[in-house]
Simulated assay, not measured.
Amino acid sequence: MTQLQFNLDIDLLKEAVINSNMEAVVRSAIVLVLNEYMEKERDQYLQAAAYERSTERLDYRNGYYEREFTMSIGKLKLKVPRTRNGEFSPSVFEKYARCDQAFVLSMVEMVVNGVSTRKVTHIVEQLCGENVSKSFVSSLTQKLDPIVNDWAKRPLNDTYYPFIFVDALYTKVREHHRVVSKAVYIATALTEENKREILGLQVDHVENYDSWCSFFQQLKSRGLQSPKLVISDAHQGLQKAIQREFIGTSWQRCNVHFKRNVFEKLPKKDSVEIRTMIKRIFEAVTIEDMRNFKEELTSQYAENTKYEKALKVLDEGFEDTIQYMQHPQNIRPHIRSTNCLERLNQEVRRRERVIRIFPNTQSAFRLVGAVLLHYQQTVYAKRKAFSI
């Protein structure tokens, strides 16, 4: 362990403490400690103390240079020791870094939690009395790249996920001096222990069959096995991709989206009774009752032309929307819709609204991935599994 020695004038120290504010005293103490620590590091690097003659000496002292170092208490001016060959670098500084790591991480954490870079600079100024540029804060987020990439590429072959939820949302990205929309694909899942987990994400140009196939292939390359059920909206390209990439997997059309699609085809007036009967179908306890209630509704309103479009939508999507009924009753509320994924999308949207337009595709992947990773660690990982 490095031993540090300080020579202090007690009377001078007493006067400084009494006549100065505590912030100035703390800053001076930290400067003293860091300067002395770097001096000892140089001695260890040279393998010789000051004015010591030694055959093991590696290099010679070459004075000092001043360097600013930003911490949570403000900006400090340190005397950094140097050597003649210029190869010595004190451990106080990460190479080319001018902020301590705790300070850097706090700024990155603010960005991930939805604070704009402009507000971050304002907060830093209020707390530390120092200015940092917006571009500096933005550059700090690049430190997230290896963390997000490792998480997004982690193996999935050590856990079986019987239920997978998928959806895509659109975000704006600058590309070739234009602002374009990019689709962000997100997949979450339920484990056999009934715990939620975010599987991964992908940013692509559009939402279509080929892009969904690519996303599923990426998940499979990490070890994902075919689930029992994939829950999503009724995007046609997505349906085809599920059939191709997951052999033996059933598709569950989101119950909430489906009912909304049916209700949109109903007239706004004089439709209270049929709306009630549709809700009754999906509130049934058994799949047989659901089918019976549907037949009853169809028979009653089949001749009424103003309900024709709604009944057609109901008939075409009905079986795909009740696949969840094939599974245990206690788990059905958790797999009949994509509501859990919609809630996650809201967290992404909350952060995205602050950014508005991402400067490039990598920045979109980085930030959305950081939000998902943060949500996994702070919400899903701490949530208890439900019993069935």
Rank of each mutant, 00 (worst) to 15 (best):
L311H: 04
Y65Q: 03
E193Q: 13
V17W: 05
V379E: 11
A364K: 06
F263G: 01
I231Q: 00
A24T: 14
K240N: 14
A102W: 03
S363N: 10
N19K: 13
V184T: 08
V272L: 11
E175G: 02
L46S: 07
V262N: 05
E288N: 09
S20V: 00
M110C: 13
E295C: 08
R57Q: 13
K220Y: 02
F165H: 06
D167L: 07
L76F: 03
V206M: 07
M277E: 15
Q5T: 12
S91G: 05
V120W: 03
Y45Q: 06
Q323K: 12
K75E: 15
V313A: 07
H334F: 05
C213Q: 11
V348A: 08
Q3H: 09
E319P: 03
K384W: 01
I322E: 00
I287G: 02
K269E: 13
I281S: 06
S72N: 12
S363D: 05
A29R: 01
Y45E: 11
R356G: 04
T188G: 10
K265F: 01
T117Q: 12
A48R: 09
V371Q: 02
A48P: 07
Y324S: 00
D167I: 08
D204A: 15
R366N: 15
R383M: 12
I10D: 10
K384C: 09
E288V: 09
E192D: 13
Y307M: 08
Q218S: 14
H334R: 00
M22D: 13
I357S: 06
R178H: 14
F386H: 08
F69T: 02
L372T: 07
I242E: 02
T378H: 14
D270T: 07
M290G: 01
Q239N: 03
N85S: 15
H334V: 00
N360D: 15
V17K: 02
M71V: 13
D43C: 10
G74A: 06
V166P: 03
N35F: 04
L229C: 03
L297I: 11
F136I: 00
K309H: 09
F282P: 01
I274S: 07
Q142I: 01
G200I: 09
I247L: 14
K172V: 04
E296M: 13
A102H: 12
H334P: 01
